[in-house]
Amino acid sequence: MRIGIIGAGALGGTFAALLHRAGHEVEVTARGAGLAAIREGGIRISGGFGDVQARVEASERLTRRPDLVLVCTKAQDAEAAIRANAEAIDGATVVVVQNGLDGVDTAARLLPRSTCYGMLSIIAANYTEPGTVRVTATAESFLGRGDGPPDDEARRIAEVLSQAVPVTAIGGFLGAQWTKLVVNMVNAVPAIVGRSVQETLADRRLRLVVTASMRETVRIGIARGIRFGALQGLDDRMLRRFARMPLTIGQRLPRRLFGYLGPVPNLGSTQQSLRRGQPTEIDFLNGAVVRQAEAIGADAPVNRALVGLVHEVERDGFLPAERVVAVLRR
């Protein structure tokens, strides 16, 4: 199958290399040093899925019409990237592999002739050098759209992608997106203090802030009428119980949730962007919680504060842990 991958960072690079290894014809988009590195030496991945060096076609925009497209940019770059490639991809099946809640709707709006799905990936990977990805934790990915059951096309695409990484077509995708949003609340605090996820969660004070942002996300989701999907050991019943817990008890959830990361330091996607000198997608993670709260006349003070701190780090560099801990005293 001819597969186009828009954005060859941590996940895009991983999917590109593994789909190429599975025998598919892969073209990726990249920019700057990333594009130069891929053209010179291909995409190199190591870690959980093995060592692969994939010589794939690469350009700033897709040059040929693909059968299947994976949009793997950061959430804030998705609209511009889809617009730039719209002529080549409108009418193809499109899978948006992104954090946040808006990706599938954005793709469907810009590509009226395409069938658009979302994919939730829990794969942990570090991309800190152009063209090079280290997979620090493997995991199953989940594909779907909307609230209904998976359709035949979703199952077909899941089978194709499973030739590279395990992918399952699921129903109730919107609820699963919210569960993934809860999981992604782990990104902000490590990015603010410049520590790995493991180091952050080992610090009780910082772990309480992560817990507070997760609990606030669940509470806003409940107020919005969301039924959380089963993902990464979480489900609707568990999250509703978590929403009622005091922080001191609730902190067990992030510790257990990220126990699978192992000893290899994982920076989280937000911090990786910072270390590359790029804007983060914080407005589509913690910021999405703030917007969802505003839509029902509520507030999300913990997540609002973390958004502000990440933007401060984007300007001025990492902050001391005390600045994060102070969020809970506001």
Rank of each mutant, 00 (worst) to 15 (best):
I226P: 04
V289R: 07
M1R: 08
R156E: 12
R304E: 15
L18H: 14
D151F: 03
E40M: 13
L110V: 10
E40Y: 09
E27M: 05
V52Q: 12
L253K: 13
A16M: 07
G12F: 06
D67R: 15
A54V: 09
A58C: 07
I296S: 04
T270S: 02
T14N: 02
G171T: 00
P66D: 01
V197N: 09
R195K: 15
L239H: 02
E216K: 05
A125C: 06
V94G: 01
L101K: 05
A78N: 14
D236S: 10
Y117I: 14
A169K: 04
M119K: 00
E57V: 05
R55E: 09
L19I: 04
A125H: 10
L120T: 10
I226G: 12
Q177H: 03
A288V: 01
D102N: 13
I5T: 03
A191K: 02
V209I: 11
L201G: 01
A321N: 01
V133M: 09
R244D: 14
A22H: 03
G171N: 05
L70A: 01
I43V: 14
R156C: 02
Q272T: 02
P246E: 07
G42A: 09
A124H: 03
R109Y: 01
V290A: 03
E129N: 00
N303F: 03
A92S: 15
I45H: 07
E25N: 13
A88E: 11
Q251H: 00
T29I: 07
R291H: 06
S59P: 02
R241L: 12
E294K: 13
G103D: 03
T106R: 09
I192T: 04
S114T: 11
P66Q: 03
A139N: 14
D151T: 10
A108H: 00
A154C: 13
S269N: 08
L206G: 01
V95A: 05
T280H: 09
L267K: 11
T270N: 11
R304D: 14
E314F: 05
V290W: 06
R156Q: 08
R31V: 13
R83Y: 08
Q177E: 15
